[in-house]
Write a protein that binds this DNA or RNA. Structure first.
Lengths: 150, 150
DNA sequence: CAAAAGTCTATTATTTCTATAGACTTTACA
DNA sequence: TGTAAAGTCTATAGAAATAATAGACTTTTG
């Protein structure tokens, strides 16, 4: 039941890209800068950002002075979207996935106890991940920093 | 964020072993029988049941007429216990695991937004998995069967 | 045009997952 | 008492997913 490194790195990069800079709004950042600040292998991050770009969550600017920036306001991007792009369906077993349903091989799906429970688990996870936006996350971080006097 | 096959098979086997037979209480079953009824590769299931036995959740009887049976009442075994034995910690990232904590490489754990959210996700998952017992599952299955007239 | 930056595809390395093999031990019972 | 039925245990093979690296290419700015 673990998030992959790809997913973890992607989320951390997106959160960083959503963090308001000195001017108050999220800034454009270069791959290099993100990888250094978050301890992510540069070339691996490159692939991840590209995937997020191709999925429409990021835009980029090529050439000197270029970089990546959010394609939409941070309040319109959920963690669930990001994880699904990088790691696939959130469901713990395929037979409870909304998007990527597949039978799981149990004798009778209609009365499968495991399926019933995993359905609930999936619901509990998506209730958080599909509701929490990048803005929610950066606000929580700011609040915590203020609380700790950082 | 997926349950492994090992975990899935183990849970299905345990649920079957917890299901009351004709005499009203959970029966002793042989590996062969479980693997046939649940479509699980026999030799793989063997390893899984052995792990669950060594962890104290199952007892076994060797020799002719032997088999596996629950080491405790079904109401005292939770799905969370089973998954942790077979798949390791439930936490989506190691830095929010209670049992298997490891730092995750973020610049500052105290103000890490991803960590805060994943902490909530972990809590939501364990709220279900550490509360749901094998008995809960078999009862839900029976109720569903009754509802469908099976 | 040169340097900085993203794009894209391929490949390798590592790990985890899934499964199989096979020799061994215990038990029941004919 | 010996044989067949069952679990025990360790090793390892095969396959798939994950993680990471490489390198050639394109775009942009000055």
């Amino acid at each position: 039941m673990r998030l992959s490194k790809r997913g973890e790195y992607g989320l951390r990069a997106m959160i960083l890209l959503a963090t308001p800079g000195p001017e108050g709004r999220p800034a454009m950042l270069q791959i290099r800068e993100i990888s250094e600040r978050e301890n992510i292998p540069t070339k691996f991050l490159e692939q991840i950002l590209l995937a997020l770009k191709n999925a429409g969550l990021l835009h980029s600017k090529m050439g000197v002075g270029g970089g990546y920036y959010l394609a939409k306001p941070a309040c319109e991007i959920t963690l669930g979207q990001i994880i699904r792009i990088l790691d696939g369906p959130l469901a713990p077993v395929k037979c409870v996935s909304q998007v990527a349903y597949e039978p799981c091989g149990c004798p009778d799906e209609a009365t499968c106890g495991l399926r019933m429970v995993m359905f609930d688990v999936r619901a509990a996870m998506t209730a958080i991940l599909d509701k929490t936006t990048l803005e929610d996350v950066t606000k929580r971080m700011q609040a915590q920093k203020a609380l700790l006097g950082k």
